[in-house]
């Protein structure tokens, strides 16, 4: 399972990298979103999957799944959500003011 997951994560990272290297603002933002999916899955996978029960003391018996990476991911999800939301609004504002969603034409005045 872990090996399969890591291969999947590798594909996600490749796709994200390709999107980040593109010229379009929205593609880049999409790429960062996919990259954060990949990273969340990676944290969980590296800790080992399906090694125990749900980490709820009253609900399940020992052994429990490692809870620490879950806490880390929870924090990461919220932060990446905040950043994605901000960057999306930023893209929206950029388009409003410069009528472009293309990084090629969003360079400084020197290149115009």
């Amino acid at each position: 399972m872990e090996t399969m997951m890591i291969l999947l994560i590798g594909v996600l990272v490749s796709v994200a990298t390709y999107l980040i290297l593109s010229k379009n603002v929205i593609r880049v933002i999409l790429g960062t979103a996919i990259l954060s999916h990949a990273v969340h899955l990676l944290i969980l996978t590296i800790a080992g999957v399906k090694k125990g029960n749900v980490p709820l003391l009253k609900e399940a018996e020992s052994p429990y799944t490692d809870a620490l990476p879950q806490a880390l991911i929870l924090t990461a999800i919220v932060i990446s959500f905040a950043v994605t939301a901000f960057v999306l609004v930023l893209a929206f504002r950029i388009y409003q003011t410069s009528k472009s969603d293309d990084f090629e034409s969003l360079r400084g005045q020197k290149y115009e």
């Binding site: 872990e2 890591i6 994560i9 590798g10 996600l12 490749s14 990298t17 990949a38």
Partner: peptide
């Protein structure tokens, strides 16, 4: 670039696993 980055992530993760 993107395929190499993905492959690198895969091999490093496998080594760390």
């Amino acid at each position: 670039i993107s395929i190499t980055v993905g492959a690198l992530v895969v091999v490093i993760s496998l080594a760390v696993l």
